[in-house]
Amino acid sequence: MRRRWRDVPAAAALLAPSAALLGVFVVYPLARAILLGTRKCNVSGRVCKTVGWHQYVTVWRSAPFQNALGNTLRFVAMTVPIGLVLGVGLAVLADKQLRGIGVFRTIFSSTIASSVAVASLIWLVLLNPQIGLLSHLLKDAFPVVKKPGLLNDGGTAMWGVAISSIWAGLGLTFVIVTAALQSVPRELYESAFVDGAGAWRRFTNVTLPMLSPTLLFVAVVMTARAFQTYGEIDLLTGGGPNSAGRPTETIAYLIYGKSSKIRNDIGIQSATAVLLFVLLLVVSFIQFRVLERRVHYAE
């Protein structure tokens, strides 16, 4: 009991900076946003009247939110599994002591260097049907990049955004999985080898179980990121094409986007943002619960 209290002064001193910063710049805004979500505010966002908690229900049920929710889930389902599989694939491919492997590792991790803005601009230059290089060069080979083009077609626009996002996220996934691979004890492979396990069996029986905590971590981070996708949408599609009923408007884009109809309405913006947070919380919780049971912890 004495021990429980003895460290309090030191703990307070050491925790004060982080706690204060996180309190003021994360917890307080969250609380404020939750409250604002129950209000209706004027165009300056400073003169508000209280509507009540049912505003959250109204927002949740509204057509734009439901559309954005569906799009966000679709985007997550597109980018997370593919990004994960590609990241693991690249890491396994490069996890070999070969001459010059460092060069390949650097290349594979290189997309970390690009911000969302940079990556989206790159893909805009490549995919835009009017100025796009890829569209121009490949339009004969691949009909899909013909006009109206990947990004202007309701059926493929989200894939255009997803490609940019997967590409930009590949580097980080690769680096983290590579790190995890290197910490897998080599003896485990040796013994699997001795047991006559083939390459695929070694991968499923040794590599995957040993990687599982990392994969859980990466999956959670990737999902959280995908749920908050904004920049790619802003630069590549603006939530459109409108002809298909805003098939790329994600929740984050609904909150901030240039062509969002709630952008100058801070009450609805806040309610939407809080709903996004709750959604993330629930999804992360489920991920931990479901995946944890299948994850093999090394220690």
Binding site: N128, Q130, I131, G238, S243
Partner: peptide, 15 residues
């Protein structure tokens, strides 16, 4: 020809 949402603001001219 319908050039879409024209986010660049110049797609109709490029057409």
């Amino acid at each position: 020809v319908y050039v879409g949402d024209n986010n660049s603001g110049a797609d109709h001219l490029l057409a």
